[in-house]
Amino acid sequence: MKHAVSHIIPNLTTLTASQTLFDMVPLFREIYAFRDLLWILVGKNIKIRYKRSALGFLWTFLNPVFMIIIYSIFLKILLSFDARDPLFLQRLVTGILVWQFLAMCVGDSLHAVLGNASLVKKTSFPRIILPLSTVLANFVNFAITLPILVVFLFVNGTTLGDMWLLPLVIASQFALCLGVSLILSCMNVFFRDTEHLMSAVMLAWFFLSPIIYPFSKIPEAFQRLALLNPMCGIVTAYRTAFLGTDLMAPRLVVISLLMSWLILALGVSLFQRWQVNFGDKL
């Protein structure tokens, strides 16, 4: 028993003013040590979203289903876009589902630290667990929508594309979502304006990313620049995986995906540097 405790919490804890916690191996070890806490918080984040709703967790399935049905009716029947582009609807639905994972993460991250002020002020645990738990909760939602997407594609007679890309793309999007969440959850503690600023930023980001249009619609002169937006590569790679369309030079997609990991690294270093001040600021 004694041993069990000592491996969970390092028995000797020294805090000094100059300590910077940005060191990946101890960070992973710390997160692992607090994995029970992480799962409780993930469960809490999932539960709280559907609190007091009769259908509860079922909404995770119903929301994307309703969304797909509504888009199908309005776009396919009323606007008959499909005459011009047979994969228009499929591309749009894929893009929107992928976008929603990011958008939900951004929305939740703003309160990942602020909303847990009572924990942060009174207990000691790796703060990174808080934004990580909101991203994981949203990842659970996203993972549930993927089979729904596959069913939708199957119903529409679409053949799946390069599905082997999927793990790489999902991992990269997870890295992006976590990186952005780390930055925003931290920023919002120190500048509450972040919250309001983000609704405008997200709207711009939505239209700057190939969600409702294919990457090829971006003027060629801007395509290289656009690849700095990690969502360009991510959405395009998802479409390649699910639809076998929107093929791009792999080199270009890789640039875009690397941006995601770069943002994660930035997020971790920023968060770890500033998290020591959370207790005083909240």
């Binding site: 028995n11 000797l12 804890t13 805090l15 000094t16 003013a17 300590q19 009174k122 207990t123 001040n277």
Partner: peptide
């Protein structure tokens, strides 16, 4: 460890449970 010292060191040996300002976290 809910707040960091501006200077100096704090060492604790073992598991610390705190009831700060009327309540646990």
């Amino acid at each position: 460890q809910t707040s960091q010292p501006t200077s100096g060191t704090i060492t604790t040996r073992g598991k610390v449970s705190s009831l700060l300002e009327l309540g646990a976290g």
